[in-house]
Amino acid sequence: MVYRAIGIMSGSSLDGLDIVFAEFGENAGQWQYEIRAADCYPYSADWVSRLKNAVSISARDYQLLHADYGHYLGQMVNRFIEENHLHYQVSLVASHGHTTFHLPPHMTAQLGDGAAIAAETQLPVVTDLRAVDVAFGGQGAPIVPIGEKLLLGGYDFFLNLGGIANISVNRESYIAYDICPANRVLNMLANEMGKEYDEDGKIARSGKRQQELFLKLNNLDFYKKEPPRSLANDFGTDHVFPIIKNSGCGIPDALRTYVEHIVEQIKNAVSGTGLPEHSATTFKLMATGGGAFNTFLVEKLSEQLKEVNTEVVVPDKYLVKYKEALIMALIGILRWRQEYNVLSSVTGARRNSIGGALWTGQEA
């Protein structure tokens, strides 16, 4: 069976809207994929501000923003279809939305009204991908592991270096969890120097690690929690970032220290999975997400993971940048097929679930 779908992802780092059009084939439970088109539409300053401040507005204004953002997403999908000549080729749109409130096991909320997307695109649309898992007592995150399991394989670990860094461990009982804030905090620090982000980690490379801050970050209570565990965006913005700011470090030193903090937490996550200490096997970790373009971060990570017999592999730039949007499309297809698309072994829910609300935009 062949499916052609669009996946949309808005990450916590607010660098833009990732859209992928991919063709998926399934035969006897084996999946293949081809990315046919992909793009990232940067957010305007107005949209960055509206999304960043969404958690502090009134309930009425929040619902209005939810609808407005849904219409915006639909318009961006239409633009993507037009620019890539995809008319009449797309059978489904799956949108992650933009996470605002994430309070498992009580609730999770992503902006981007599915009805509005469906009305703009006049296509079937799947949204609210995390909600059912949370209702079943899960963390609602990460949800990407189902796509890693079905589409990628061949690696022992999958690391996403997005606004939040998370890891998947590819073994019989598949597990995955959030590690620590990543690009969102790094970008906030770069913003202090008038930069959108620290290109290639050049500013961090020029700094020096501040040991007191490094130890303080590594001793945060969150890192003592056992998986499954997940992070809301505000852990990085409202808790971690103020710790760094209040340390009095210059920005280069702060960036250097935070890069090394991210690396330390990833190393702890990899070594904490029970890998044999003296194995002759070299384990493989696929790194994707915007942080995989941070040359300095990847260098430091490769150095540290060699100590636990693990090789860092950065795939082609399409997969690095668009893996999550690609997997959103697959999650939407699985929802359409009414098959499990969220793994309870990852989230801690009572059972696997079929996540997503389906909105019908086409005519009868």
Rank of each mutant, 00 (worst) to 15 (best):
L343E: 03
E307H: 15
A109H: 14
V314W: 00
V320I: 15
F283D: 04
V312P: 04
T347R: 03
Q338W: 11
S247A: 15
L111W: 03
E324M: 06
L213F: 01
E260F: 14
D238S: 15
P42Y: 11
K149C: 08
Y88T: 13
V55A: 15
T288A: 09
R4I: 07
S58R: 09
L103I: 13
L213E: 00
I35S: 04
W336D: 11
I175E: 14
G361R: 03
R50D: 10
I6M: 06
T100D: 01
R4T: 11
V125Y: 02
A232M: 08
R60W: 05
Q63D: 08
N268K: 15
A116K: 00
E34R: 15
A94Y: 02
A54G: 09
S56H: 14
G361P: 01
N183I: 11
P315H: 05
G250C: 14
I8V: 13
L334I: 08
E196H: 13
N183L: 04
D198F: 01
G114Y: 02
E120W: 06
R229S: 08
G97T: 08
N53E: 14
L301T: 10
G137N: 06
G236L: 04
M1P: 09
L217H: 04
K245A: 04
L152Y: 12
N78F: 08
L152I: 15
W31G: 00
G289C: 05
K208V: 07
W47M: 12
V270L: 05
